[in-house]
């Protein structure tokens, strides 16, 4: 039998899913073990036990100066920036994506421009953003918006243009105006793609968030990571990294669930 025709049984599949995770854990464990054996006070690869202890104290012990638990404050600050940035980008992307996809005049005006904009590396603009918008929240949110909006616009305008011409003409023969075609034909078919595009752009969004926080902030997940880096506090960094990974996974899962509930017609197979 060809390899492409062999499929694992459900039990084997579950096992195979776990293998890479277990392997990564074991590799870390062994590496950490080797380093700690050579130097018990080594900080580079702390043992999983140390990380767990640090995580517990991060979650329970309040900061001596402010009395608040920094971990939750950081999480709240980062998630606020992320959702503001992604939300704004999604709104802008949806509006311009629809306009470019539906209206030939707007397409002629903007599609090349957006293509060029999307080539600008957003991080290179960060100094300008800090100077223009200050070191506060605005510059971080704007970095996320600048970073992912061009992608969203291009993806959504592409989706609008994928709507078969027949369907648009059919709507025209039912007397639909351009606005009605936008609201009742294009928008409902673009929204599932919007959720998908947001899921794809969350990776870059986190990247821009952490980059902005690393350079100038007074709280946030990225800020904390780059702060404790000075003390080689790998246990704190790893805890934060695992937490960010978990948050990203939960957000992705939530978006997928929302899409499934909100757009039942995409689920039915033809």
């Amino acid at each position: 039998m060809r390899l492409i025709n062999r499929t694992p049984s459900p039990a084997l599949r579950a096992f195979l899913v776990l293998v890479p995770f277990a392997l990564a854990f074991v590799v870390y464990l062994v590496a950490s073990e080797i380093r700690l054996e050579a130097n018990p006070s080594d900080r580079l690869l702390p043992s999983p036990g140390t990380i767990l202890d640090t995580a517990v104290s991060l979650l329970t012990v309040p900061d001596r100066r402010s009395g608040a638990i920094l971990f939750w404050g950081d999480t709240w600050a980062s998630l606020t920036r992320l959702s503001l940035g992604v939300g704004l980008a999604a709104a802008i992307g949806l509006v311009f994506g629809m306009l470019i996809g539906l209206l030939p005049h707007v397409r002629a005006t903007l599609s090349i421009f957006v293509g060029v904009l999307s080539l600008i590396p957003p991080l290179a603009l960060l100094p300008i953003l800090f100077i223009t918008f200050g070191l506060g929240e605005v510059s971080k949110v704007v970095l996320i918006v600048i970073g992912i909006t061009p992608f969203l616009i291009r993806d959504l305008s592409g989706r609008v243009m994928e709507i078969p011409r027949e369907m648009i003409v059919k709507a025209e023969t039912l007397g639909a105006s351009s606005l009605v075609i936008a609201l009742r034909v294009a928008l409902p078919q673009v929204l599932p793609r919007l959720v998908q595009a947001i899921r794809l752009s969350l990776g870059p969004a986190w990247l821009f968030l952490i980059a902005a926080e690393a350079i100038a902030a007074n709280q946030g997940l990225g800020y904390r990571i780059f702060l404790v880096r000075r003390y080689l506090a790998m246990d704190v960094i790893l805890t934060y990294v695992l937490w960010i990974t978990f948050l990203a996974w939960v957000i992705d899962w939530l978006l997928k669930a929302v899409a499934r509930r909100a757009f039942p017609w995409t689920e039915v197979s033809p």
Partner: peptide
């Protein structure tokens, strides 16, 4: 341009999948 005086049915894509 196409208007309500003409109804049309194509071979495919003549109904709206999201309704």
């Amino acid at each position: 341009e196409p208007d309500r005086t003409r109804g049309v049915v194509f071979q495919r894509y003549s109904v709206f999948p999201h309704m």
